[in-house]
Computed example of a mutant assay.
Amino acid sequence: MGTHVGQALAAERKVAGLDQRQLANRAGYSLSMIKAVEQGREVASPGFIAAVSRVLAIDPDRLLGTPFLDALEEDGPLAGLAELRAVLTEGAYVQPIDPPPDAELARELVAVETALRNDRTRRALAALPELLRKAHGAVQMAADDTARARAYELLCAAYIAAEGACCRLGYSSLTALVLERLDTAATHTPDSAYAVRSLVKRSRLLMAHGSTDVAMSLVDRGIGLVPGDTESERVLRGYAHLRGAIVAARGRRLELARDHIIEARALARRMGHESDLYTTDFGPGNVEVHACAVELEAGDPGKAAHDGAALVLPADMAAPRAGHHWQDNARAWLMAGKYDRALAALNKARAAAPQQTRLHPSVRETVYGIAAAQRRQSDSLLGFAHWIGAGL
């Protein structure tokens, strides 16, 4: 079998000089859970990975093994990655290039956002470095304050797209750099939406490192920035409530997580679609997806499995959002001991968002978990494992 999180955890624990009981006590998990994860009998949840990584003082990527370079290389060179690194490293001194007219630059942004929404992350990444340099050029060449604010809004949106691409491809170490640039750009636009997006996205990064209290404080600040009742404000507030639900669940505050779902559901009830405003993907379907995710993280995995399987996802839901739901549903079925249903959910994730599914660490861990629980691997499981590059 290929390397799973548990094997990496055991190695890092020994380097840190801790036995299993010491790690369990410091991470706030049971000794049996530590043993089960290390032996591959239990799938490591994102919350578990964040907690043990914090105790071991390592980046969570060390345990996850991301990015999955072998899988990425099978599909050819990752165009745009080196240039995006250069743009981010240049920081405040980024070298701009002359922008096209505003309308053309806006179309280039929409093309990147559409690629991300349709699970074409490689395509988006290839276009992002030039888009960012053009957006910086638009800021520098703006003729007046109005044009400059408009250019900064486009720059913020481009950095938001860059954060999404880095996360999906497994380059989470780049997201802190992206968020620094987004934070700066957001201060130059009067539209609070970009400050909200910046706060909520940083909460995701903090959550991955186990800082759920700080992450929740940023979510609360984001919600406070959009007190009005316009459609865009409701969408942004609902988007922040959904992140709040996951942060609270990750921090094992189930009632608070459910309260955030209730607030988001009330906002979504007035909508008849999944909104693409500010690329939030907020809507009634996304609320129910998050309700299942809350149960998986901190509530009842069996309920998450059954409720998630029964969901009829809206046709206008973004492909990666749908794919992520089926990834979660697979993990829930695995925890419920229904291995065939777990594999079926993984195949639904593959159908909805193949690029994302192939590169997401939770998919790999679910595959390892199914394999560890079964005496004999089916051809369908072996085929899926081969597709994601996980040897069984």
Rank of each mutant, 00 (worst) to 15 (best):
H325W: 01
L199Q: 09
A92S: 12
D213M: 12
V87N: 07
A245C: 03
S362V: 15
L125M: 00
R234M: 10
R331Q: 15
D183W: 15
G137R: 04
S53Q: 03
A165G: 03
A245E: 00
R221A: 08
L382K: 08
P60D: 00
Q140V: 12
D281Y: 13
R204A: 08
K338F: 13
G369T: 08
G224A: 12
A135C: 14
W387L: 09
V196P: 00
H260Y: 04
K14R: 13
D340E: 11
S32G: 13
A82E: 15
A193Q: 04
L78E: 06
C156A: 00
L116M: 05
G222T: 07
A319Y: 07
E233C: 02
S173Q: 15
A186E: 05
R237A: 05
Q327T: 12
A8F: 12
R375D: 13
N25K: 14
R120H: 10
A126S: 09
E297I: 06
C156N: 02
A336L: 13
L84V: 07
G224T: 10
L109C: 00
R202K: 12
A79G: 11
L72S: 03
S378R: 08
T189G: 07
D145P: 11
S362Q: 13
P354A: 04
A142S: 13
A215V: 04
L64F: 05
R243L: 12
A138K: 06
A92W: 15
T184F: 13
A36E: 02
E113H: 05
G391V: 13
C166M: 14
R375V: 12
L177W: 13
A293T: 11
L179K: 06
L256G: 14
D281C: 11
G17A: 00
Q356D: 05
A248K: 02
E74F: 15
A50T: 00
I261S: 04
A50C: 05
T114H: 11
I34L: 04
M271S: 01
W387G: 05
Q355G: 02
V5K: 03
L63V: 02
L179F: 10
K201C: 08
I97G: 01
R54N: 02
D340T: 09
A342V: 04
A305Y: 04
E231C: 09
R21T: 09
R122F: 03
E255H: 14
D379T: 14
S45D: 07
